[in-house]
Write a protein that binds this DNA or RNA. Structure first.
Lengths: 118, 118
DNA sequence: CTGAATCCAGATGGATACTG
DNA sequence: CAGTATCCATCTGGATTCAG
């Protein structure tokens, strides 16, 4: 039955789109570092994250934070300090990424050993 | 003890490097689609993969396959046909990616529902 | 059939300076 | 402090053509 094959192909397409959706969210040079920084401390201010991640510029931090917020992974809160500061924390949805990040971490370690041997 | 904090930071750095390693391997517009295509059928020829993935060009397929091969995720075999054809299959190491891809698929589906609502 | 080579547009990201 | 704006180099990937 060609039917079954077609169904299978459709299923595959859906799955590939889903993986791509995840990758789109996680792509960008600093996304994962930012998520890690925030989730590590629970709550984190802009300047804290800027210090946590070596090499990132305020321009990129701002840009990536905005994208993470659009994807509802982090929540942004303006604190009434003088001067103002802004706090970022993971949303519940953002928290669900932890399994993936953990898997990626484990695999990355094995992979590096495999490739570089260290 | 500042020591503990330093240790913690070092640990975090290693973990972030590891996640980044994984992402580097998986990045590129077609990597996951290619892996999926190959692992789906076990063995797959260049032109088959080209047909499996709609929109990919031979230039990109060639490029991404090469990177996957460098990372030891796939094995390339030249078949003695006329004209020659080339077969690709996952290595054992490549197989270990399946958990991650599965995770990314599941999360992507949930995420899409969350964001777009479909 | 399986690529490699070339050309080119658009995206990405760094450096720096500026604003509320 | 938390961004925004601008400029600019590099990277990415598409289209097309050529080669073994």
């Amino acid at each position: 039955m060609g039917c079954k094959i077609e169904e299978f192909k459709q299923e595959q397409k859906k799955r590939m789109r889903a993986v791509q959706d995840s990758m789109d969210v996680l792509n960008g040079k600093w996304k994962i570092a930012i998520i890690t920084s925030i989730c590590c401390y629970g709550k984190r201010r802009f300047s804290d994250i800027l210090n946590d991640i070596e090499g990132i510029s305020n321009r990129m931090l701002s840009k990536e934070l905005k994208e993470l917020e659009i994807n509802q992974l982090i929540k942004r809160t303006v604190l009434d300090t003088q001067p103002i500061s802004v706090q970022y924390e993971l949303t519940e949805h953002g928290d669900t990424l932890q399994t993936i990040i953990s898997n990626l971490t484990d695999w990355g370690i094995v992979h590096r050993k495999k490739i570089v041997g260290s």
